[in-house]
Simulated scan of single mutants.
Amino acid sequence: MKKAIIAMSGGVDSSVAAFIMKEKGYHIIGVTMKLYDNDDIGIDTERTCCSLSDIEDARSVCYKLGALYYVFNFKADFKEKIIDDFIETYENGGTPNPCIRCNRYLKFDKLMHRMKELQYDYVVTGHYARIEKKGDRYILKKAVDLSKDQSYVLYNMTQEQLAHVQFPLGEMEKSETRKIAEENGFINADKKDSQDICFVPNGDYAAFIEDYTGKKYPEGDFVDTSGNVLGKHKGIIRYTIGQRKGLGLALPCPMYVKEKDLEDNKVVLCLNDELFSKELYANDFNWLSIEEPKEEIRCKARIRYNQKEQPATAKVMEDGKVKVTFDESQRAICKGQAVVLYDGDVVLGGGTIL
């Protein structure tokens, strides 16, 4: 009998993934990754993923399915790989995507290592995406339910990981998932999907960083693209490219964050038209469903999670970085975010925007 570890967050998706694998005849165990203590990140609520109530929900589902349930302590890895990088990226003027790093370093690295130690065959998650084999190569594809597709945050997977991971929900609509949970009396059948970064559930990233590090980020000048001072900002980590709300300025027309000058501690504002650009460079690039191309390729590219892919050309440079040139200018390309390349519903690969 094949054996699968089900990564369970306490939500409805991973619970139904566990149910499906059990129905397919797999021997399953449920595991939750303990990533932090609420005290560590200054949160006194249970609104975060992998909180005590989430653990109890996951345990309840496993009990219903007759499966053993474990909690693995990955707190040290989460601090080093996710939280510290999150802070460092903001301090260096970027906008991080911690969910991508969590998938890369914890779900599909640490958890797969644990899978091998326990001599199991697969890691299973509740992600909405599909894995298929084409010749000798595994390919990652978008989910059938495009409104829930999570392929963008999975581009960092390796061929070895794709061979030992299953996404049972990739062929399903979200409504089907909830129906299965309801029919089986799962405690989390009506539980809302978590939207926020798990360790910053209130969305105030700057306050989290200041509380966590004990640092105060000094005020500086808002300036326009000509260098004219427009007012004072409240610390450079509080702003991201394309931001308009929350600047605290009375301006004659709407202005947006164009860039952050770390050296002089200035936030540069511009008009909306000046936010658009056609090119980006990305590093730490992972070619997933294809080998690294020797020539320029046509594709579609996505520069943020909820964006529709845009026609583009991609080229690997001599230094290994990838240059992506869009057919039409894109708004507010953010350093630190991911660019992911697609051919139809196939994920070609992705990297971090420089």
Rank of each mutant, 00 (worst) to 15 (best):
K3G: 09
I5V: 08
G10I: 08
D13F: 09
S15V: 12
V16W: 09
E23T: 12
K24M: 05
K24D: 10
G25K: 10
I28P: 13
G30D: 02
K34F: 14
D40E: 15
I41S: 05
T48G: 06
D54V: 03
E56F: 15
C62P: 09
L68C: 03
L68D: 11
F72C: 08
K75A: 10
K81V: 07
I82R: 03
I83S: 15
T89G: 14
G93T: 13
Y105A: 07
K107D: 04
D109F: 06
H113A: 10
E117R: 07
H127K: 03
K148Y: 00
D149C: 06
Q150I: 01
Y155W: 03
V165F: 00
P168T: 04
S175C: 01
D190H: 15
D193Q: 12
C198W: 11
V200F: 07
P201L: 13
D204G: 07
I209G: 04
I209Y: 04
G231V: 12
K232C: 13
G235C: 01
I236T: 15
T240E: 13
L249W: 13
V257C: 06
L262K: 14
E263I: 11
L280S: 05
Y281K: 07
A282L: 05
D284C: 05
P293M: 03
C299H: 05
R302M: 05
E309N: 07
K315I: 02
M317A: 12
K323W: 14
G336M: 09
L341F: 05
Y342V: 09
G349L: 10
G351F: 07
L354K: 12
